[in-house]
Amino acid sequence: MFQSVYVIARNTFREVIRDRILYGLAVFGVMLVMFALALGQLSFSDHVRLTANFGFTAIHISSAILSIFIGSTLVSREIEKQTILTLLARPISRTQFILGKAMGLMGVILCVDLGLALILALILAGIDFEFSVNFGVAMFGVLIEALLLVSLTLFYGTFAKPFMTVVFSAASFLLGHWISSLDFFVEKSQSEGFRIVGGLLMRAVPNLEAFNWRSAPVYNLQVAPGEVLVALFYGLAWSLILLSATSIIFRRRDFV
């Protein structure tokens, strides 16, 4: 079971690593993180915080773009190029295939995010930033969110074309971060229809703000270990549900 998932994950990792698109996105991420340094100079008093704040946001955005853009073609490319035929003719189940693809992409995202985190750490070290364990906690949140976004994108990818997969995933990403605001508007709304639709959307989309600890290293806030643990289970549960649904839809699909 795990051997096949590992072999597919390794191949997916190799496939993405050798793809030029990754380098385009990675360069974009690096530039965005470097831009944090320039942006920090705009502030007279709080340039360290501004640099750190924008740096973490840059990593977060880069990670989300990577998850959604590469995730959207991860399975569709296999189908379009018909490489899936020889793959599924081997002794692997479709669930193992989906898991392997997700794990392979997560491996790439982990490497890119760690690389960007290293660049940010070097920048922050140069401007006397006070490092704490919160730096790691913030990055951990970014990675759990990436796992959830990869799962979400794979799920949409089973029934939508890559372009629509990107649209659905990006919409879910935005909605997932605005769930608290949506909750506020749903509560205040006079319209019964908006309350029903808003309520449904809040339940259909994961709350991505649950993994947002990016302010903690910037403002030296305390993050309770329990909060991280709950968020971890929340993220894993959503990913498990989404990957299971993907696998169920994918299980009976004809490749013609």
Partner: peptide, 12 residues
């Protein structure tokens, strides 16, 4: 199994 059109992983 060899499929009809031999499209394989180009990166390998």
């Amino acid at each position: 199994f060899l499929p009809e059109r031999p499209y394989f992983y180009e990166h390998l």
